[in-house]
Design a protein around this nucleic acid. Structure first.
Lengths: 228, 228
DNA sequence: GGCAAACACGAGTGATCACTCGCGTTTCTC
DNA sequence: GAGAAACGCGAGTGATCACTCGTGTTTGCC
């Protein structure tokens, strides 16, 4: 009935330990996957005894869930600022920069995120929340497509959004596999090119007074700004 | 020194058991991932005792390796017939059909393949062989691109091939997630559209006597034949 | 300074897993 | 049909893992 039957008062030290443990868990999960990671290994990575770990988490799954929720929250922030209305006013290449860069940035900075979300071995709870995020992102992409191609039938829009997102995920893996630096930047630019070429034929020119101008800008190998 | 210190004579019954065990292993690996699958569970799935399983495989890893090698072999056959020289003579949409369809077919029929190749939890041996296949496929894609765009610098060609393959993998996941039937077919067609729009701007018209004709056919939302 | 609660420890516990072993059954070979 | 070898079984074994518990230390509060 009551929401919090355990009003355990945490000290500052405790909060620090939790953060420390979650960081260690992220490293270990990232290296070995969820199932193959032992709680003792996480405790060792955090320079802490197994008993201490279980003072803050009731079981192994809870560690993954807490870590997953924190990452998911950061992810939501990242994509929240990516899909702002003013970005929608941008031409397609600009929008791609505005949307793709933060998402890539986040996944580069938090490799544990994909490791935790992608496996079929993760506890069900994480999978559910990941599905929610997935659905949210898909909706956003659909909205963007609807904005650029208002006359596209809803069915086509859904299919296009799904494929756009799937291609992005594939490209994201490639970006993460590339070594940081120039090569990674080039891969990111290439991913944007892919998305631009895929979506360009769909955009309908905004209704203006001049009905003749119309150049989908797809002949040149488009280079969007390489971020930073 | 000798190559085969164990010339164990297998009876027909034994070969059948092996196939049965590998099929069971494919199901279990596919459902739970490699690490979380127990050898006892595989034996149970095959309606066989744990002892019998270990009559044919020295350890758990050997099961995954044998299964992986058989799938890899089938995969090589599938992509071998996909990249034939006569397919290279086809226009780009035709080539996409010829290459994409068999690969998708294979992965639909053998979901264990991706489950075994994708995880970071698999025994090192599998990962190595998968990397080899990956490199082979990448080379093939590069050759195809070189055929369609002979003047493209090698560096660009490599990047394009990598992104093409990455996008295909992303799209493949989407296809596998779609329910079989019309929806899956539509997803496959959309994947081909994506690849076509990405690659079309690169193709250079074959050198003929008429130097003026040149229409990259990218304005219309291209529909490749939906296979079968 | 003294008390209670939060923090920290690490050896210990029960469950599970990969793998073995001894023995009985089927199949092949002559 | 008899001997050998492949096949088949399932209880058992040692290792590892998630998790606990008794005890000692640090911190917040009066």
């Amino acid at each position: 009935m009551s929401e919090e039957p355990k009003p355990r008062r945490r000290q500052a030290r405790g909060e620090r330990r939790i953060a420390q443990l979650l960081q260690a868990a992220a490293n270990v999960f990232c290296a070995n996957g969820y199932t193959a990671s032992s709680t003792n290994a996480i405790a060792r990575e955090a320079h802490v005894s197994p008993g201490t770990l279980y003072q803050y988490f009731p079981n192994k799954e809870a560690i993954a869930i807490e870590l997953g929720e924190r990452l998911l929250h950061q992810m939501r922030e990242a994509h929240g600022q990516a899909f702002t209305p003013e970005n929608l006013a941008l031409p397609l290449p600009g929008l791609l920069d505005a949307v793709v860069d933060p998402l890539i940035e986040f996944n580069c900075a938090n490799p544990a995120f994909l490791a935790l979300m992608h496996g079929s071995e993760v506890p069900g709870r994480i999978a559910e929340e990941h599905d929610e995020l997935h659905a949210t992102l898909l909706t956003r992409v659909q909205e963007v497509i609807a904005h650029y191609a208002p006359t596209l039938p809803a069915e086509d829009r859904l299919r296009t959004a799904g494929m756009t997102f799937a291609a992005f995920k594939g490209g994201l893996d490639l970006v993460l596999a590339a070594p940081e630096g120039a090569e990674r930047d080039a891969t990111i630019a290439e991913l944007k090119t892919l998305l631009l070429r895929y979506l360009s034929p769909l955009v309908e020119p905004p209704v203006t007074e001049s009905p003749s101008v119309q150049s989908p800008s797809v002949e040149r190998p488009v280079t969007t700004t390489p971020s930073r």
